[in-house]
C-alpha cells in the first residue's frame, strides 16, 4: 500500500514538475501578455494541482492534509482570479493580442491574394 502511494506520488509530482517547467518556458517564450497569462495559469492549475496531490498522499496527519487542501484551494482560486483580473485590465487598457494581429494579417493576406471578385 505504502509502495503504491509512493509510486502514485512519484508520478503526480513528476507530472507537476513537468507542467511547472513547461509553464516556465511558456512564460519566457510566449509572444504576448495573453499567451503568457495562459502559461502562468498553468502553474496554478496543473502544476500546483499535481504537486499538491502528490504531497497529499504523503501527508503524515490530518492537520497537514487539511492545510494542503486549503493551500491548494486558495492558491487556485486567488491566483487564477488575479491572472483573470490582470488579463481584463490589459484588455481594458487597449492592448490587442499579438495572435489577433497575426490572424488579422493572415486574413488581409488572403484577401489580397484572392483574385478580385469582379
Amino acid at each position: 500500500m505504502a509502495l503504491l502511494l509512493d509510486i502514485v506520488s512519484w508520478i503526480t509530482l513528476m507530472i507537476g514538475s513537468f507542467f511547472c517547467i513547461t509553464a516556465g518556458v511558456g512564460l519566457l517564450r510566449m509572444p504576448d501578455v495573453y499567451t503568457r497569462a495562459h502559461a502562468g495559469g498553468m502553474i496554478d492549475s496543473m502544476g500546483a494541482g499535481m504537486i499538491f496531490f502528490g504531497l497529499l498522499l504523503q501527508a503524515p496527519d490530518y492537520l497537514i492534509a487539511i492545510k494542503l487542501v486549503f493551500t491548494f484551494f486558495f492558491l487556485l482560486v486567488t491566483s487564477l482570479a488575479s491572472i483573470h483580473a490582470l488579463a481584463q485590465t490589459v484588455n481594458v487598457a487597449g492592448v490587442n493580442p499579438k495572435l489577433a494581429n497575426i490572424v488579422n494579417r493572415l486574413e488581409k493576406n488572403r484577401q489580397k491574394e484572392s483574385p478580385p471578385s469582379n
Binding site: C20, A23, R36, G40, I43, D44, A48, L75, L86
Partner: peptide
C-alpha cells in the same frame, strides 16, 4: 505583474 504572480505561486509550491 504576471511573472511575479507566477513566481509567488512557485514559491508557495
Amino acid at each position: 505583474i504576471l511573472a511575479i504572480n507566477s513566481a509567488g505561486t512557485c514559491i508557495v509550491l
